[in-house]
Structure formats: structure tokens, C-alpha cells
Computed example of a mutant assay.
Amino acid sequence: MIFTIFGDYVRHYGNKIWIGSLIQLMKEFGHNEQAVRVVLSRMMKQGWFETERDGRKSYYYLTKRGVSRITEAASRIFKLEPHNWDGKWRMLMYTIPEDKRQIRDELRKELLWSGFGNFANGCWITPNDLAKEVQLLIEKYEIEDYVDLFISEHQGPKSNHELVAKSWPLEEIEEKYEQFITTYSKQFIIATSAMESGQMSDAQCFVERTNLVHEYRKFLFIDPGLPKELLPDMWSGSHSAHLFAQYYKLLAEPASRFFEHVFEKDNDLSRKDEAYNAEDYPMIIRE
């Protein structure tokens, strides 16, 4: 949830927030001060956050690694339509020794996050151009001696769709999207009615929008973001993206107003990114 708040709000306001403001925001979701401090400490050890002091106040901000991860996530979350495919497959092969098992396990998690599919033991594939992401992973884990990346064309005898079926559980992902649509279609209708009648506060809109993003971003861990040529004809991921966009736009203005109300007390509101306008959803997509 802290990642979600940083990604959807704080990064547009100078990427830094006083811990007191963050605690107040997290209380809206039922999290207490001690829990927030414990999680922040853990995330600092993991390399996601750094802290600085101004008098008696502590401010938290994303590290370079954190900003990179949040930016990558945002570009995928706010993408409405599948992209076109260049017809190429990227194949990553590695032979990481047993004494580096922990690195191997971490690499697998990172590859899944980036959208690679496990085609065979030690062999991962993707139709997307992830050369930059792979290079960053190689440098991060210092595994230059164990990894090879190829760009190739599939010549059969199986079809490209059969390669997809072997490497990603699309039916399970489709099921998750259908659950998302069922849940949030109803909530969208209820929230629209409540907002029109003035029965939904800015704080409630903030909670609802943050929960919406928090739930939708979970698809980043399971949906590889395949190009439209490799997706089923009836793909619920596209419907989910448009539902998410509609609901997000509905909640955007009052949710941002509540965040700014909390943020402006002890933070520099003047550092708000002028390119960011929460009321203008397409602008967020272009980001």
C-alpha cells in the first residue's frame, strides 16, 4: 500500500513525504503508526527508500531503484490497449550455479515481474523488447558470466499461440480479470451514485482510488503484457483496463484533493509536478 501511495501520489509531489503525513494517510486504511514505521524500515533495508531529516522531522523518498520500479509499473498500469508485435521472440538462458541459488530465485521473481514466461528449465521467453530490463538485472545480480540473451524467430512446428500457452497460464489470468470486472463494475456504479448524491467524502474517494490501484497493480505480477497478436480474441484484460480507467477518472479529483489536504500541512506542495493532473486521465497514460 505504501508503494501504491508513492506511485500514485507522492512521486508527483517531489517524491518526498514527511512520515507523519504518510502515517495519517495509512490510518485511512486501518494501519497504525507502529506498523507503518516497521514496514518503512524493512523497505529501506531492501533498497526501496531513503530518509532525510529536517529538524525533528523525518522525510522518506524513493531511491533511484524505487523510482525506476514505480515508473515501470505506472507505464504498464495505465496502458489501455495491447501493443503491436514485431514478430520477434526474446530468449533468456542462464546456468546459475547452485551456490548462487538465492540470486537465481530472486532473478526468477524479477523475470516474472517483467513479463517473461518460463518456457523450459533455465530458459525464459518474451515477445516484448525487454533488453534494457534484462541488462539492469544482469548488472544488479552480477551474473554476466551465466546469462545469454537472444532475439529470434519461431519457425515451428508449433504455433506462436502454443508457445504462449506453454509459457503463461492465460486461462488463470483471464479468470482473475473476470473477478476484477465483476467486483469493480458493481463498485463503479455504487460510487457514481454516491458521488452524484454527495454521499461520498474526499477521504472515501482517496481510499477507494488507492485500493483500486492497489488491486489492479497485482496484475503486473501475473499478466506478461502480451501483444494483441498473441492474445485470445476475447481477452478480459482489455475490458478490465477500460473499467479501471473509467473508475480511476471518476475518483481522481476528490481523491487528490484529500491527499493534498494532508500533504500540504507539513510538505512542500509547490513541488507538485505541473505535468500531472489527476483529473485528466489520458495525461497520466501518456506519462
Rank of each mutant, 00 (worst) to 15 (best):
A131Q: 12
L137S: 08
S197G: 01
H161R: 14
P224S: 06
K176S: 13
L62Q: 06
K272T: 00
L62A: 10
V10L: 06
D223H: 04
R257N: 05
W168D: 03
I190E: 14
K27Y: 09
F49A: 10
P82V: 11
E178H: 03
N118Q: 08
I103T: 13
D105R: 01
F219E: 02
C123A: 09
S75F: 07
Y248W: 15
V164N: 07
L212V: 07
Q187V: 10
R56F: 04
L163Y: 02
K27M: 13
K218M: 11
L25T: 07
L112S: 14
K272I: 01
K16Y: 00
D266K: 09
A252L: 12
T210C: 06
Y59S: 01
M44N: 15
A74R: 13
G66L: 11
Y59W: 06
G122P: 11
W48M: 09
L170V: 00
K176T: 07
M283Q: 14
T210I: 08
Y276L: 11
Y141S: 04
R101W: 00
Q199C: 00
F180H: 03
R217L: 11
A275Q: 08
Q246E: 15
E208A: 06
E144F: 08
A241Q: 12
N267M: 09
L220P: 04
Y141F: 15
L22T: 00
K176Q: 13
E215I: 00
A165H: 11
A275H: 08
D280V: 13
F219Y: 05
E28F: 01
K166S: 15
I190V: 10
D202R: 15
G47E: 04
E215G: 01
Q102A: 09
V213T: 10
E174Y: 04
R53L: 05
W89I: 02
L212R: 13
S256D: 15
A275N: 11
L137M: 13
K265Y: 08
P254R: 02
H214A: 13
Y60W: 15
Y59P: 01
M93E: 13
